[in-house]
């Protein structure tokens, strides 16, 4: 464990807490893409299956459980508890277009062709694009709630590096949309 990873983990933790807190207190999940949250739950589920097979440390186990539990809790809040406030008409990204290529790529490009390794690789690929439904939603509505952040560590791993670069580009796009649409309040409007 180094300071960068710890800060990354804690930022992630805080981002999730802010998101859950905001949904809970506003009693609304307007502006949040349920589809992105489903993809993140899929990312954590496919990556943290090693919870069953390998014990690393109490910190590691608790963080993995927290990320899993909080992503399923977010899905519950969006699709069950505050379903009425979920903006599903604007959350129309076809997630199969992200899941299927990620599965295919994980089957083709991986370090080792084994069940857990392919799932781990799938989770890395999927994480890099899981924000796309949220990005799509912001570009349509010009609204955004909290953004969850994700990170990669400086481990020389080509799969993680390429996925990280793709993810960074997408997040830059998100930042651009946030500035131009959300902060400046410019909404695209169709002529009457």
């Amino acid at each position: 464990m180094n300071i960068f990873r710890l800060l990354g983990d804690l930022s992630h933790l805080i981002a999730i807490i802010i998101l859950l807190h905001k949904i809970w207190h506003s009693r609304s999940c307007a502006g949040i893409s349920g589809k992105s949250q489903v993809l993140f739950a899929l990312v954590y589920t496919s990556r943290y299956l090693d919870l069953i097979t390998t014990y690393v440390s109490l910190y590691n186990t608790l963080m993995k459980i927290f990320f899993l539990a909080s992503s399923y809790a977010t899905i519950y809040l969006i699709y069950v508890k505050f379903r009425a406030t979920y903006d599903k008409n604007h959350d129309t990204f076809r997630i199969e277009f992200l899941i299927l290529p990620s599965v295919l790529l994980a089957l083709l490009i991986n370090h080792q062709f084994s069940f857990l390794e392919v799932l781990w690789t799938f989770s890395i690929y999927l994480e890099s694009v899981a924000i796309l439904p949220q990005l799509f939603m912001v570009s349509k509505t010009g609204e955004a709630e909290s953004i969850t952040s994700h990170y990669f560590e400086y481990h020389y791993d080509l799969i993680a590096i390429v996925a990280g670069v793709v993810q960074t580009v997408l997040y830059c796009d998100f930042f651009y949309l946030y500035i131009t649409k959300v902060l400046k309040g410019k909404k695209l409007q169709l002529p009457a």
Binding site: M1, D9, V56, K64, Q112, W120, I159
Partner: peptide
């Protein structure tokens, strides 16, 4: 090193 060897990473 494979991805699943990195058990301590989140």
């Amino acid at each position: 090193e494979s991805g699943t060897d990195l058990h301590d990473e989140l």
